[in-house]
Design a protein around this nucleic acid. Sequence first.
DNA 1: CGGTTGCATGAAACCGGTTACAGCGAGATG
DNA 2: CATCTCGCTGTAACCGGTTTCATGCAACCG
Lengths: 341, 341
Amino acid sequence: MATIRELARLCGVSPATVSRVFNNPEVVNAKTREQVLRTARQIGYLPNESARTLATKKSFMVGLVWDTDHRRPGWRHPFFQEILIGLKTALSGRGYHLLMLATSGDTSGERTEDAYVRAVRRHNLDGVVMIDSGTWDPSLRRLSESGVPCVSLDRPVQGPRATYVTSDNAGGARLAVRHLHERGRRAIATITGPAHTRPGAERLQGYQDELSRLGLPHRPGFVIEGDFYLSGGHAAMRRLLEADERPDAVFVAGDEMAVGALRAIGEAGLKVPEDIALVGFDDIEVAALVPPGLTTVAQDKAGFGTAAAEAVVSMINGADAPPPRILPTTLVVRGSSTPPL
Amino acid sequence: MATIRELARLCGVSPATVSRVFNNPEVVNAKTREQVLRTARQIGYLPNESARTLATKKSFMVGLVWDTDHRRPGWRHPFFQEILIGLKTALSGRGYHLLMLATSGDTSGERTEDAYVRAVRRHNLDGVVMIDSGTWDPSLRRLSESGVPCVSLDRPVQGPRATYVTSDNAGGARLAVRHLHERGRRAIATITGPAHTRPGAERLQGYQDELSRLGLPHRPGFVIEGDFYLSGGHAAMRRLLEADERPDAVFVAGDEMAVGALRAIGEAGLKVPEDIALVGFDDIEVAALVPPGLTTVAQDKAGFGTAAAEAVVSMINGADAPPPRILPTTLVVRGSSTPPL
DNA sequence: CGGTTGCATGAAACCGGTTACAGCGAGATG
DNA sequence: CATCTCGCTGTAACCGGTTTCATGCAACCG
């Protein structure tokens, strides 16, 4: 395996010069530079990143914190794949690699508490991106407060060099309610996400705001808390159907719950959209596939990854933590909310 | 940032001894060992992995080769998320991290050919796992032949330390056909994957084998090649429906195609399973969600990740390349194949 | 009691880069 | 002509670990 000294010897120059050819090409004489590059290609020289990291304390690696513990709810984040692709593409375009960090559950023995912080320090990671796992253990807080550039998805973070990326949840919810109103619906209920989650709370807020703006009444029985999962949506819908007053439309704060709701409506012998119109949130793959097609508020999944990459790289380059990035949401109209009525 | 020399000084021992405490605890005197460990905890000493990698040439990192180039079809492998979770969990349980490698498309300039091989050498990666991207460019071949432990998913590889993991595609296809036969179907067609892909070819083979075993006729018009995607399944199903002889059951070699087929059947005014029974392959999330529920041959997605991790780690530890691992498939019966008939 | 054995440790080289600093020759300047 | 400047390059220390080899020391043995 060719080393820098070997290459230097072959070219009759010092290792320092070779190093400069790769890191500071402009300071070295054009002729020597060309010769070094040519010889490097010939002998297949590749700089050793470990040595480079050791010397510079820059690893050009960003850690991904993503809790895949099966006992916790977060591991199957619905967009994970798309976010990941966006993230990886944007990062590698900027010269950074993505290292998937072991989760707290994995490290055996001793206090697993600061597993992330330790991984970051051990590997000289330049920054960290964390995907909201639904649970927010203290070690994540310590991570964001430890000073490494840190971007969180869907969850506000504090820390000297920390920021977050999220969707315009409230705005999306307002879009959904307005759309249902335009379609002639007036008794609009909602199935929310868990109140303690940020997206859950914000989407509920947007729903309520838009109801007020439209002059529609707020009925307490029309707000049911779900859990973002299929079964929760199913159960919540059943509760809505059992109540005295039946809504003619429901804004469901997550597509997976919406599919559950769809099923509950079918089981009750009712039809979508004739009896009840439905609008979901997220635009996961299934939304387009399940009959009659789920109208939904789409999140910009690839945008999450890109925005996170941008933010973390800018902080790595010394910039201050940028303000939180709120990605716009868009309404995708499908069968579950189309006329009649 | 505490270094090994600092810790050594504090304990009144040499750096060598400290190093031994962490790597070879048994050779060092119990009393000094305890003292070193205690002091290490106090000052928060963490060994620097870059330095360690530089010295030992072991990085405890495994590269993941996964082409996310959007111009290529492979980037949205349906199980990616589940495979990844299995892989990451199994790897970190064995002390390895997972590094997502930049794809050929990302590296700018010069010959991007050997981007992977170079990344492996630069970062001293101990091994590599590659997810079949549908395209098999020569650089992957060079990678597997370069001698690093290498595990491929769904695609046979050659190389001194290379092996692969795949599902029992033929067996799964036989299960599907047998099931349809048991349900009373006799005119069983198939929509295949692309013939040049391994799973595509194997599933077709299984279909044909089982047809023969059951004494059912092979009708050429009953075999339509699809592309593993929704639109391909839709188009293929339409061709089947337009033909003179209509099948009463179809084995569709991929769930996504099956959903497309389902839709085509609906558009033709026919019903599943009354007019045509359907069995898919994969068991993706949608299969359970789309009415009437898609009977399908399930692959062991988490098993892929675990098996890949096991194989790559065993080779890293010096073992010979293990034989290819064929994961069993199981039939999941849902509405699309239930009686009547 | 001299010699062997074995355990625990230290000294120093090494892994493969980066970089502060110094030096050198050529051309410009007073 | 002496001096200054500037562009280019080399020397050597350093990053933070690991590992070979040598050694001090105590116990053990004949």
